[in-house]
């Protein structure tokens, strides 16, 4: 700061505090709602202070769910979401590491073509090719399976480009030294390149875990069996019925549970999260 103006500092903090309040308020409201009994909503206004039913509501959602709304216990859906987010993140990282390695450290016919095919995936988000992609997955018999939920999402141009950028910054001499030291391509990849990519892998994992967790449209399409519901899509089904039945407290308890894992990842791995976010957009 160049000069010291008290009113400006005051304004700065005011802006930030208002910003934080606006950002936090909807979640606060949801949390409050999740601590009340269902009768508390009959009066026509959402309470603003915590109620006494928190453990009861969360316990019920985690273990039982609401069968009338077709929603299984949240614990099962959380488990599904975790599995799917991890498989997607690990899968994307694994296949992107391999393809970036091929593109940077080898020369071979059709290298440029391969690069462009990967690049094209950037331009084809699920949302724009829903029906034919669904048809492919249905024909392969992958509906209602973890494979169907994850495999179609694990191609990643962004991750490939990130690793490619990183590999290009690894000094040529390192690979040459390893070759003189008797390391073949896969040994070099495992012994030298992977350990060097640790930070990038971790940062990318944070971003991709969130990406996998928040998927909605794809799970919605390929799962009809509630055993495979993810928490994000399960909530939507809950909420759709909550409007007719006053189950706000239970819906909001699930909302908080659905938000918590990825939000905690962002808060506790903030440094990696920021690095991942900024690097993938380079």
């Amino acid at each position: 700061m160049v000069e010291n103006r008290p009113w400006l500092s005051f304004l700065t903090h005011l802006v930030l505090i208002v910003g934080v309040v606006v950002v936090v308020f909807p979640v606060y409201l949801a949390f409050i709602a999740s601590t009340h009994g269902s009768g508390d909503f009959m009066r026509g206004l959402v309470p603003l202070l915590p109620g006494p039913h928190m453990l009861e509501n969360y316990g019920r959602m985690l273990t039982q769910g609401i069968s009338t709304a077709g929603a299984p216990p949240v614990s099962i859906m959380l488990m599904n979401s975790t599995i799917i987010a991890i498989v997607i993140a690990v899968g994307k990282i694994a296949i992107s590491l391999l393809s970036a390695y091929a593109i940077v450290f080898f020369k071979f016919p059709f290298r440029l073509l391969a690069f462009w095919i990967i690049f094209i995936t950037l331009m084809l988000p699920v949302e724009v090719r829903i029906i034919p992609t669904f048809a492919v997955v249905a024909n392969l018999g992958l509906l209602n399976s973890y494979v169907g939920l994850t495999l179609p999402l694990i191609a990643s141009a962004t991750a490939t480009f990130l690793f490619r950028q990183f590999f290009l910054t690894v000094p040529d001499e390192l690979m040459e030294a390893a070759r003189v030291d008797g390391a073949g391509p896969m040994k070099f990849f495992r012994d030298i390149l992977l350990p060097l990519s640790r930070t990038n892998i971790a940062a990318l994992f944070v971003i991709l875990f969130i990406y996998g967790w928040v998927q909605y449209l794809w799970p919605l399409l390929v799962t009809t069996d509630s055993r495979y519901y993810t928490v994000v899509m399960g909530i939507k089904r809950l909420a759709a019925t909550a409007d007719s039945e006053p189950l706000w407290n239970l819906v909001m308890a699930s909302v908080i549970l659905a938000m918590l894992p990825p939000v905690l990842v962002v808060i506790f791995m903030q440094r990696l999260f920021v690095k991942g976010l900024v690097d993938t957009e380079k």
Binding site: P171, E176, A177, D191, I192
Partner: peptide, 20 residues
């Protein structure tokens, strides 16, 4: 022959030590 099969050792300008 591959570099490793030539029974040579090399010292590089930037040392090329494995950083990890």
């Amino acid at each position: 022959a591959e570099p490793a099969e030539r029974d040579i050792a090399m010292v590089f300008q930037n040392y090329a030590l494995y950083p990890h």
